[in-house]
Design a protein around this nucleic acid. Structure first.
Ligand SMILES: [Mn+2]
Ligand SMILES: [Mn+2]
Ligand SMILES: [Zn+2]
Ligand SMILES: [Zn+2]
Lengths: 139, 139
DNA sequence: ATTCATTTGAAACATTGTTTCATTTGATTG
DNA sequence: CAATCAAATGAAACAATGTTTCAAATGAAT
């Protein structure tokens, strides 16, 4: 599906920055940080527009946020036909050295039975540390 | 145990800001944000010292960080005799309205079997949304 | 083509976190 | 109890992330 189709399908107004944002994420196939998206968007990137877009696209169910740590959020498409995310049903590993966010599909997030009155809008099971590649380079 | 005893026990140098930080957390009995700690420390608080202290005390195993979301980290004592945390073996709920961080002791974090080469330094299972109290006030 | 609500982009602002470096402090030794 | 000195502190400048405001641009619908 093209970025344009996705916006149509979710009934979200089709604008140049939104199309460019979705395309950047489609080409990457892994969760991207704001900065990684900025590099891919080039002059189509604007900070304020970016934050408004991720808000709009998250609400529409087109993308989701993954809070990698307190100073880095990554963004990924939902239901990406690249075989990436459906929703966030798996854990993520954030490497503090290389800042890559790994999808750990083998670690599933259990069903979360919240006390009544609590509403889950977003959740993450995030593990932070050093990844295998960075570990082997340290030797 | 007094703050002073805890520092001795972990062989961490006893300084005025560190003692004040630990005391603030002991009195609170719930995970606190930097700002909540700042209020409790009064004039003993300094930004740079605070960040260095949480780094030192985390490494020593006296406290731990919980990444509530991308713009809020909460801090809690380990093995607090108040009956609070042992380690982070349970999920947390962060209310986006009132910014309270709830310990969900009923939701245990499963054992995390990482692929070889990956090292877990810190992990969080965090659910973000609206808490029961804020929900009932909205009606 | 015209309309008009929505969206954009620039700028100023707020908050969180880091770095630098001169000064202070607290554990140790005599 | 001094004297010592590595470790820690605090002030300031800096960097990164995220929000708000508002005039100008734009895109969906008529
Ligand atoms: Mn994933
Ligand atoms: Mn807890
Ligand atoms: Zn890595
Ligand atoms: Zn609440």
């Amino acid at each position: 599906m093209t970025a344009s189709d996705i916006l149509d399908h979710h009934q979200v107004k089709k604008t140049t920055p939104r199309v460019a944002l979705i395309q950047a994420m489609q080409e990457a196939r892994v969760p991207l940080s704001e900065n990684e998206i900025k590099e891919r968007m080039g002059e189509l990137y604007d900070r304020a527009t970016f934050y408004r877009s991720v808000q709009t696209l998250s609400s529409a169910g087109i993308i989701h946020r993954i809070v990698a740590d307190n100073v880095m959020v990554k963004y990924a498409l939902n239901n990406c036909e690249n075989g990436h995310h459906h929703q966030v049903d798996h854990a993520h590993f954030f490497c503090r050295q290389c800042h890559h966010l790994y999808c750990l599909k083998s670690i599933k997030v259990q069903t979360l039975d919240l006390p009544s009155g609590f509403v889950d809008e977003e959740h993450d099971l995030v593990i932070r540390g050093i990844c295998d590649q960075c570990n082997s380079q340290l030797k």
